[in-house]
Design a binder for these strands. Sequence first.
DNA 1: TATTGTTATACTCTATAACTATA
DNA 2: TATAGTTATAGAGTATAACAATA
Lengths: 153, 153
Amino acid sequence: MARHRNSTGGNPPESLRDPLALRLGYQLRRVSVLMMADLVAALTPTGLRPAEITILLLIGANSGCRQGEVAAALGIKPANMVPLVARLVDSGLVARARADGRSHSLSLTAKGAERVAAIEKLLDRHEAGFKSRLGGSELSGLLKSLSKLRGDP
Amino acid sequence: MARHRNSTGGNPPESLRDPLALRLGYQLRRVSVLMMADLVAALTPTGLRPAEITILLLIGANSGCRQGEVAAALGIKPANMVPLVARLVDSGLVARARADGRSHSLSLTAKGAERVAAIEKLLDRHEAGFKSRLGGSELSGLLKSLSKLRGDP
DNA sequence: TATTGTTATACTCTATAACTATA
DNA sequence: TATAGTTATAGAGTATAACAATA
């Protein structure tokens, strides 16, 4: 049951029918991948990856928090936090102190705080490019919908 | 500049401050990951992965389309299509025919068409669980916003 | 010469299991 | 005994480069 492309000499269709257009999960993923690729490109000059900047931002807003708290908040497995945090410590952006012998408390160094300020601006610019595609009041509704999808009441 | 958790005998805060709450890209990604995990769980009985079902759905809606068209429509690299399509062919779900010696035209087998019908129902149920978290008219607005973010005018 | 598909491969992200040490 | 972090490793997903065959 083929489409018999060009079998009658007609022009081929310019694009395929899209059965995924109304699939919420698929559309979310495509947009997420698109924004992630743009973010990675924007982060290139910093030498940091997306997961690392989320860690930096979270520590910046919660100085002295424990490593496990950061992992839980970001949905990162504790085992995967280890090399991420180690790299941030090695880069001189994060200070790691023993909190009680079995837990680490994390905070930004002065250099890390500077870097976070620069990253915030970079993120503002990165997101502005996408937000400009939305109507004036559309963004807040979108964020609210996303929050509901995550399970917030 | 630590928070001095419990240093005055107070209770620790139940959660961290979230500097990512208003970051569109981050919130999109968290929801996308959440839905993807639910989808993977829902797909377990089928033995198929998300990328494979998108290929099946696209072929189902565009019988006879070329492999490269499917790759382009789904944002999959041609090199990565090869093992995906091969597995679907081996499973007896997809028929691959030479279209013009250098291109393959793809279509569903009878078994593949049956499977797609079942998958559509499975996807309906999967997405219904999330859509139920949204208000009545919220979904269409959300899909429209996502379409704009992808660059559609 | 440009296009379609393929092969091989490498890199990132994520997941699990087993371990150490501390409470 | 439960918790926090660590180590090692495996898997999935995705990326590039080089190639063959065909238009």
